[in-house]
Nucleic acid binder design. Structure first.
Length: 629
DNA sequence: CTCTCGCCTGTTTTT
DNA sequence: CAGGCGAGAG
């Protein structure tokens, strides 16, 4: 990107795509720091650097009317999808059918990611019908799901050559990061945009392909030359991040994969510290050891909290570490997991905004029509849904009909709700102080009182109220920056994990995140925790015969570390409130012994003694006898 | 119509 | 353990 700018290419003609918002942010930052001496960073705002999804939203908001959607379409997230699917399944198979909405959602996603119009019948007898009804349901609600964003963008470009042409004119230089993770649809987008100009540059590493479960195919990068025959390949084999010891460990692990593009990674400099393999009795001990080590290391080397990251395979593993960090009042941030906007109270507030902007959005409407309670109960709702279905219009329109008809206890409620949405719809259109309107709305419906009333305790109540307050202040902030419409605000919310607000200014503490989220990032000290058989590799991957992807995940984790790497596992772990025995990951046996140091978390930090010798059979034996007792 | 209680089920990874 | 959901009392 910096090179293109140096060559005099207009920033508006450059399009840079990534897979996560964090990676996009990181890319922008590094780019700005490269060019800031010669160019005004502000003039670079027209350069689009973002995720595939946010790029697609942008072009769809501009052109989607050509596909017979309304411009103010709503983006459905996972829970909205599930809600819609449950409706569809209920309609199709009866209320007490045992069809799992989650499974269907997964199948639909898989099909869409591969660019299919419908899942094949083999996926389950009802799946094709459900898929069809689901898609109709989205359309009816003027909504699109995450995968549709990509699919519709492709359709737009294919069916409307004038649009494609305009986009090609606009985005003349295309760059894609983490290209090994492109799925069929994303590949199609790239191909459509770049096939004429051939001004395309992609970066990727097949050893870091960790999204095949989302339809990513690393063949896209391996066969790049087939689509762009004059492509020039540049191998980046020197690693500037890790110490030779860490890189050696990574190389040893990854070479156990059979399906890969061979390369010789090397790193300069001193070997560095040994990699520490820490065994703990349980997750409490593991967390205690890790946090004590962070405290220690920070003091000794005079480091910032930001130098440390705790990485894990699955989100729920963050909990014990959060508790322990809190105990010592160490600042930290958790990436992912239950996102900010996924919290009940925040979702409710967002749903109000959605309905106000797009009343056809039944899913959001049903969420808030009786929230806080205004006398619209199950019976009324069923009537509304039935009426809407029969008349083939939205529930909102059905509300407009039924509020006229008198009788029934819910009448007043319907009247009130309908009037409320109308009034605020007008206000949001006419006034520009969105945050004030939002405050008025929350006040009028008694949202905070309702939260206090329905919360289990004071703690929960105040934290939920705070979340809503924070939402309102982020709205205020957005409004002050004048960076976009209210619709843009909601889009960002949907597509972006809520990041810590003061992340930019004074650091954000220790980072906790999944291995997937860590890709593309680096930390001075990495603690890769829960390295146990069944967690990494995950049990499910073994069933699905995809252990090699788990190994790549392990590889990604190892190579996030610049100087220090700790791999840690427990002998037992609580799961569903029940304690279970655990065993070290088989991946650990693939590590070169000479770069390892074995540590038992039972020994205190001041007197760290290397364990006798790591012998997994004796370790296993010890565990078996322990569990036997 | 509202609310509480207790049973149930699930936990991979992300936009 | 925790959040979702249905049943049943008020």
């Amino acid at each position: 990107m910096a090179y293109l700018i140096e060559q005099g290419i207009a920033p508006a003609n450059i399009l840079a795509l990534t897979f996560t918002n964090k990676a996009a942010r990181e890319m922008k930052e590094r780019f700005i720091s490269l060019i800031k001496d010669d160019h005004d960073p502000k003039s670079m705002k027209v350069l689009f650097a973002g995720t595939f999804h946010s790029f697609c939203v942008r072009i769809l908001r501009e052109f989607i009317e050509k596909l017979d959607y309304n411009k103010n379409f709503t983006i459905y997230d996972e829970s909205d999808q599930i809600a819609l699917l449950k409706q569809v399944i209920g309609k199709l198979a009866g209320a007490n059918s045992d069809i799992d909405a989650n499974k269907i959602k997964f199948l639909i996603g898989l099909a869409k990611n591969k660019g299919h119009e419908a899942p094949t019948a083999a996926n389950g007898e009802l799946a094709p019908q459900i898929f069809q009804r689901y898609q109709e349901g989205l359309k009816l609600r003027n909504a699109v799901d995450f995968d549709d964003l990509l699919l519709l963008a492709v359709r737009l470009m294919k069916e409307h050559p004038d649009v494609l042409d305009a986009l090609r004119q606009r985005y003349r230089y295309l760059l894609v990061d983490e290209y090994q993770d492109t799925n069929q649809t994303q590949f199609e987008i790239v191909r459509l945009l770049a096939s004429e100009s051939k001004n395309i540059c992609v970066v990727g590493d097949d050893d870091q392909s960790i999204y095949s479960w989302r339809g990513a195919e690393s063949t896209h990068i391996l066969e790049f030359g087939n689509f762009f025959p004059n492509a020039k390949t540049v191998k980046l084999e020197q690693n500037y991040r890790c110490t030779p010891n860490i890189l050696k460990a990574a190389n040893y692990v990854i070479k156990n994969n059979s399906k890969r593009h061979l390369k010789q990674l090397w790193a300069d400099g001193a070997d560095g510290d040994k990699i520490r393999l820490v065994a703990s009795a349980g997750e409490q001990e593991e967390a205690a050891w890790v946090v004590a080590e962070i405290l220690n290391r920070r003091r000794i080397d005079n480091l910032s909290w930001e130098s440390f990251a705790i990485l894990y395979r699955a989100n729920h593993l963050s909990r014990t570490f959060e508790l322990e960090l809190r105990k010592f009042r160490i600042p930290y941030r958790v990436i992912g997991g239950l996102g900010f906007y996924e919290r009940r109270e925040v979702k409710d507030v967002v749903a109000y905004l959605q309905v106000i902007m797009n009343p056809s959005d039944d899913i959001s409407l049903l969420r808030i029509i009786n929230q806080p309670a205004r006398g619209i109960g199950k019976v009324t709702l069923e009537e509304l849904i039935r009426g809407a279905r029969e008349a083939k219009h939205s529930i909102w329109e059905e509300v407009q009909l039924q509020r006229q008809r008198s009788g029934g206890r819910s009448q007043a409620g319907l009247e009130k709700f309908s009037d409320l949405i109308h009034r605020y719809h007008v206000r949001f259109q006419q006034e520009t102080t969105w945050s004030q309107i939002m405050k008025d709305l929350l006040e009028e419906i008694g949202f905070f009182e309702d939260i206090r009333r329905t919360s289990k305790d004071n703690n929960e109540a105040s934290s939920r109220c705070e979340n809503v307050q924070e939402f309102v202040s982020s709205l205020a902030e957005f409004e002050q920056k004048r960076e976009g419409t209210l619709q843009d605000f909601v889009d960002n919310l949907r597509l972006e994990q809520k990041e810590d607000k003061d992340e930019e200014k004074d650091g954000f503490g220790v980072t906790l995140m999944t291995l997937h989220a860590a890709k593309g990032l680096e930390f001075r000290h990495v603690f890769l925790v829960g390295v146990e058989e069944g967690i990494l590799p995950h049990d499910r991957s073994k069933l699905e015969g995809n252990v090699e992807e788990e190994r790549r995940l392990f590889y990604v984790g190892i190579t996030r570390a610049m100087k220090g790497l700790v791999l840690s596992y427990c002998d037992k772990r609580r799961r569903y409130g029940q304690e279970e025995p655990r065993h070290p990951s088989s991946f650990l046996t693939e590590l070169p012994q000479d770069v390892l140091e074995h540590i038992s978390a039972n020994s205190t930090l001041t007197e760290v003694k290397p364990e006798v010798a790591f012998d997994r059979f004796s370790a296993l034996k010890a565990k078996l006898s322990a569990s036997g007792r």
